[in-house]
């Protein structure tokens, strides 16, 4: 809460529009803006939580059929971005189009129709805890289709097979490990054969084996089913290994955009810091605060 106005924020150079990184981004966005294969088009997105600015005039494109990763340090609002794309949150300004439809102009039924074509994988899996694995995967099918029970069963088993958990169909969600729960959630997300899947931190807190499984699973699903995948993560190595397109967000703006190879070669300091995981650089370890010595000298208050 203590934000001294007189204290220069360490991040100010980042949001300076004259910086080379920002110009590079603007240029690249302009080049893809008119391509028809853009599935998600974000223009001028601004969003704030209280007085905290999460996004400030953000532009972003997601190409159809690609695996697009959005990366950035913790707290840059990556999950918020997914919630904005799916219409769970409303932006303060700007426009988000998914498959040509302005998400925040849709009425409730229109939004729900659109969401049937989107799957989202939550960090926690978000499985319904009072239903078995099978019922969880069957849930969207029962909800939105009128399939015969035998056909429904076949579909569910196929989806579970795709994530390698056909044998776990009778378990309850609390009997699953974190990685298994996420894979079940993935099976549920693809149950309705969506056009796009959004992954919220799919690799966070996974052991190396299930991490590797998820990485290959995401890529396979994307290519086999012709999906578009949006991936939000801060695990640089895993993300870079499967993404076609990478966006790095910091301080509410896109600071870099390109293929993993392009970003790996990007000379700019903040991209280097993030991609290489350097502890200090343009992005600071400390949350913005007044000078430590001044702060310690101040009496009373907190």
């Amino acid at each position: 809460m203590v934000r001294d106005a007189g204290n220069p924020l360490p991040s100010e150079p980042l949001v300076d529009p004259s910086s080379p990184a920002a110009q590079a981004v603007d240029g690249s966005v302009a080049s893809v803006a008119n391509e028809p294969e853009v599935l998600v088009r974000i223009r001028g997105l601004s969003f704030r939580r209280g007085s905290r600015v999460i996004f400030d005039d953000l532009d972003l494109d997601i190409r159809r059929g690609s695996v697009t990763a959005v990366m950035g340090p913790s707290g840059t609002g990556k999950t918020t971005l997914l919630k904005l794309i799916t219409g769970q949150l409303r932006p303060d300004a700007g426009r988000i189009e998914v498959d040509g439809e302005d998400v925040h102009r849709l009425d409730k039924s229109g939004l729900f129709r659109l969401r049937r074509r989107m799957g989202m994988l939550f960090q926690s899996g978000a499985l319904l805890t009072d239903l078995t694995v099978f019922e969880n995967v069957a849930y969207p099918l029962r909800e939105h289709t009128d399939l015969r029970p035998s056909l429904l069963r076949k579909l569910v088993l196929l989806k579970l097979e795709a994530v390698g958990l056909r044998g776990a169909r009778d378990l309850m969600p609390n009997e699953l490990s974190g990685g298994m729960a996420r894979r079940v959630a993935l099976a549920r997300a693809i149950a309705l054969d969506p056009m796009m899947i959004l992954y919220d931190e799919p690799f966070a807190g996974q052991d190396p084996i299930s991490m590797g499984m998820l990485v290959s699973l995401i890529r396979q699903l994307n290519d086999a089913a012709g999906l578009t995948s949006v991936l939000v993560s801060h695990d640089v190595r895993e993300t870079a290994s499967i993404a076609d397109d990478l966006y790095v967000i910091s301080e509410g703006r896109v600071i870099a955009h390109g293929t993993p190879a392009e970003l790996a070669a990007d000379p700019s300091e903040e991209v280097r810091q993030f991609m290489d995981g350097l502890p200090d650089g343009p992005m600071h370890f400390h949350y913005p605060a007044p000078d430590l010595a001044d702060d310690l000298r101040t009496r009373g208050g907190r």
Binding site: K108, M118, G119, L127, L128, T129, H144
Partner: peptide, 17 residues
């Protein structure tokens, strides 16, 4: 708890109110 474990958001994303 359903809210804390994102089950409510999950339902919303499955186009279930």
């Amino acid at each position: 708890l359903m809210k804390a474990t994102e089950q409510l958001s999950g339902l919303e994303m499955m186009a279930v109110d």
